[in-house]
Design a protein around this nucleic acid. Sequence first.
RNA 1: GCGCCUGUAGCUUAAUGGAUAGAGCAUCUGACUACGGAUCAGAAGGUUGGGGGUUCAAGUCCCUCCAGGCGCGCCA
Length: 564
Amino acid sequence: MASIPALLAERIQAVSVLDPELRPATRPQFGHYQSNVALRLAALAKDGADEAGERPEWVAAGMAPRQIAEALVERVDLSDLTEPLEVAGPGFINIRVRSSVLATVVTEQLADIHAGIAQTSEPARVVVDYSAPNVAKPMHVGNLRSTIIGDCLVRVLRAVGDTVIPQNHIGDWGTQFGMLVEQILFEGIDASTLTLATSVELYQRAQQHFRSDEAFAEAARRRVVALQSGDEQTRAIWKSLIDVSKAGFNAAYARLGVLLTDDDLAGESIYNDALPKVATDLEAAGIAVIDQGALCVFIPGDDAPLIIRKSDGGYGYAATDLAAIRHRVDDLAARRLVYVVGSPQAHHFHQVFAVARMAGWLPDGVSAEHVGFGSVLGPDGKMFKTRDGKAVTLDTLLDAAEEVAAPDIAMAAVKYADLSNALHKDYVFDIDRMVATTGDTGPYLQYAHARVNQILRKAAAEGDVVDDATATITVLAEPAEQELALLLTRFSDTVAEVADGLQPHKLCGYLFEVATTLSSFYEKCPVLKAEGEVRRSRLVLCRATQRVLATGLDLLGIVAPERM
RNA sequence: GCGCCUGUAGCUUAAUGGAUAGAGCAUCUGACUACGGAUCAGAAGGUUGGGGGUUCAAGUCCCUCCAGGCGCGCCA
C-alpha cells in the first residue's frame, strides 16, 4: 500500500518533471492536498532561466503561473483517485481525494499487520545510544529526557522495519571509581550490601574525603591504576558497585515502562582496552598530534582541539566515544548511529564525528546523528535544581506526577510533555499542565482512546465484533467521517517522517489531531444509534482510529488503557 | 572574545520558502435525561524580539542589533 500523496505525486511528476511537493492543504476549502509546482515552473519559464532538462517542453517561456497550473491540470489524469483538480490563487493546484479512495486505504490499513505503517525498502542496522546514567549517581532529569526520547526513537525505527541496537552507554568507568573503591575499603564496607541510595551517599563521602585528605587522594589515584590494570580485589568491588546501580537503573526503567534491558548495557568500561589503539592509529595516520603534552586532533575550521589522550597519559571521553564508533560500525555493523544526548554536547559530537570521518572510521554510507535536547526547567524557568542546588532526581519527578494521577496516566503525562515539543527547546516541568485531561496532553490522548474503545466494546457486547482482516469501510458520506479517514491515511507517512528526522513531536501533533478529529466525528456522527450499512461502516472507522491511536501511543512509549 | 541554540496571542506552543501564521490552556458566548460533558460548536486574542536585505512569495534564507541560555585543551 502506497501513501496517497505519494501516489498522486508520482502521476503529477510524470507531467511536471519537478517534484510537485504535495502538502496537506492549509484550509478545508483548498481540498486535501495542495501543490505549488506551477509557481516553481513559472520561475523556470522566466527569460534567462532556460537551463536544459528541468522545464517540461509543454511549458512555454514566459507563461504565467496560473496558465501553467491550468495546463498541468489538463494533462494529468487523476480521475480514479481524486475529484477534478482545481487551480486557485496565484497558481496553486488543489486536490481532493475521492472518499471511496479514503475508504479503501483505511480498510487496507486496518487489515495490515503493521497498522498501515509502510516498511522501509532498505532496512538498516541502527544503533541508538541513550539513557546513559552514571554508576553511583541517582538518575536525574537529563537521564529522563534521554531515556524517554531514545525509547520512542527505538520503537519508531523498529516499526518501520529497521534493526535497532540500543546501547546504554552508562558511566561505569573513570577516575571517580578509584575514589569510590578506596572509600569502601577505608570504611570497611561490604560492597555487596550497598544499594543505589547508599552508594550515592558513599559517593558524597568519598568526594569530601578526596578533597580534605591528600593521602587519601593519592591512594584513590593509585586505585584507578589498580582498577585499569585489573587488580582482582579492586575489580570485585567495582563490579558490585555497578551491580547495585544496575538494579537501580532497572527499577527506574520498569517504572517508566521503557524497553531497555541488561542486554543493552554497553558502558564506558568496555572500551577501555581499545583506547590506546584509538590514540596510536590517529597518531600514525598523522591526524592527531602532541600539543602541550596532550594528543590532540585539530579539526579544520574549529579552534578547539579534540583531546584524545591527556598529558598525564589518561584517556578522556573523546577517546571512548571514538572507540565506541569503531565498535558500532565494525562489530555491530551499524549503518546509522543515533546519539540521544543533551544539547550541551553538540560541539563534542560534532568534533568526534569529524575525527571519525577523518580517520575513516565513519565511512560514506554510515551516518552519525546527534539528537540533542534542551533542559528541563523548574517552575522559575531556570535549570531544575533542588533548594540546595542539587540536580532533581528522576524519582522525585515521577513521585510528584503520581501524587496527582494514577501511574499509567502520570507516565503518559510526563512522557508526552517531554516528547510533544521540539527537542532542542527547553521546557518547564509543570505537573498540573501535563496531567490535564483537556488540551494537548498524554492523558487526553488516552481518554480519546478509551472513549472510542467504549463504543467498540458496547458493539461487541451486542455481537458486532469488528474483524480487522475482513471489515470494510463502505460509507464515508459525512464530512466528519471523511476528515477522520483522511487523517488516518496519513499515519504511515507521519511515522516515516519521525523515523527519518528523529522528531517525536511530529507524531505527538499528529495523534493529537486524530484525537480532536475523532471527538468531532463522535459528536456529529452517531455510531451505535446508526443503522445498517452506516453503523457497520462507522464501527470499522472507529476501530481503525482506535488502532492508530493505540499504535501511535505505543510508539511514544505510552500505554493506551481500554478504560480510564 | 569565538561558536551553537532560543525569542511566535496573557500562558504553553505548531508551521518542508508558499494562500488569511495553526493549535491547546485561560477568557467570553452557545449546545445537555449525554454511543462516558474528561464533550462539542463559536468568539476574541499576532506589526512571529527590533531594523535592513534576497525572492513572484520570508516566522522560515542572508546581514545587523537587542534579550536569554549553553558550550569553548586535558571532568564525563
